[in-house]
Computed example of a mutant assay.
Amino acid sequence: MDRPLIAVTTSRRSGWRIFPLVALNVWLAGGRSVRWDTARPPDLDRVDGLIVGGGDDISPDLYGMSVVTSARLDPDRDALEHRLVTGALNRNMPILGICRGSQMLNIALGGTLHQDAYGFFTTSREFRTILPRKRVTLCPGTRLHEIAGNAPMMVNALHSQAVADLGENLRVAALDEGGMIQGIERISDPFALGVQWHPEHLFYASRQRAIFAALVSAARARRQDRSQTAAVDADMDLGATPEDIAPAGATTDRE
């Protein structure tokens, strides 16, 4: 199989342990991965898709605000990922944002963040664990709803910030029980999806692997100069599962 090449951004500090999990999910979905961080000069023209991974909070300087709560920041990574997301969008390249990456997707498109998400959404339950303890609802009519199914989903949660004002051409794709945004997506090409949780840690669940499968499907469509969102929609409309999209031999146990 001709596997699309997906760039994965990581922290220089923790990327060594996060990247293998993301790369595993991309491989199961039919792609292959390369790791990028601030120590590695990136070249968007050599990849087919982009995953912006999780990590430290994003500086409010990027969306015109000042720091209102304590946070661990990485300005060099902020600048790199903002440039990469903007460059990917300009190249019609599909993007998956994971946790921090979802927030960066929103900021790059002109949106803002709640710096203290749980201080604002006081009825949202705060969990800081890689275990699936947080309940989210996928919004009907969204692409994420088509990709991962209509049942409520149990996910993990490690974030302190969350999307506030939506960026251009984005819509809400998932919410938690307190109304905090947990998923966002572009309405049209290029395919771009952001999830506030960490699906790479939940690789045993087919609904989570389907998120990576959708990105790889979009990357393959871009290679073939086809509509990415239409390609992903067609996979879902035809009842495609991760077994259909991923290489033979990949496991697909349900949640």
Rank of each mutant, 00 (worst) to 15 (best):
L62G: 07
P75I: 00
D43R: 15
Y63P: 06
G31H: 09
G87H: 11
L50N: 08
I58E: 07
L89T: 04
S59L: 01
G30T: 02
T86V: 03
E81F: 02
D43I: 05
E81S: 02
V34W: 05
D48G: 09
P42N: 13
L62V: 06
R72D: 14
S33V: 03
R35A: 12
T69P: 00
P75S: 10
S59D: 15
P41F: 07
G53N: 07
W36I: 15
W36S: 11
P42Y: 04
V47R: 10
G31C: 08
L44M: 09
I58R: 12
R40E: 14
S59H: 09
I51H: 13
D37W: 07
D56F: 07
G54A: 13
D74P: 08
G53C: 06
R77A: 11
D57Y: 00
D43Q: 14
H82A: 00
W36M: 11
V34Q: 08
D78P: 14
G53A: 02
T38D: 04
R46P: 00
S66A: 13
D78V: 08
G64A: 10
D48S: 10
R72A: 14
L44N: 11
G31F: 08
G55M: 09
D48L: 08
A88T: 09
P41R: 15
S70F: 05
L50S: 09
R83F: 00
G31W: 08
P75V: 09
L44T: 12
D57E: 14
V68N: 10
V34F: 04
A39Y: 12
G55F: 02
D45M: 04
R40N: 09
P60N: 10
D76R: 14
S59I: 08
G31Y: 04
D76F: 04
S70V: 09
D57I: 04
R83G: 13
T38Q: 12
L62C: 05
G55H: 03
R72V: 15
W36G: 11
G30L: 03
E81V: 03
G87T: 06
L50K: 08
G87R: 12
G55Q: 08
D57N: 13
G55Y: 02
G49E: 13
G31N: 07
D48T: 07
I51C: 11
L62E: 07
L73G: 05
V68I: 15
A88S: 11
V47W: 05
L50I: 04
S66E: 12
R77E: 04
G54T: 10
R46D: 12
R40A: 01
H82W: 02
L80S: 04
S66K: 14
H82T: 00
V34K: 00
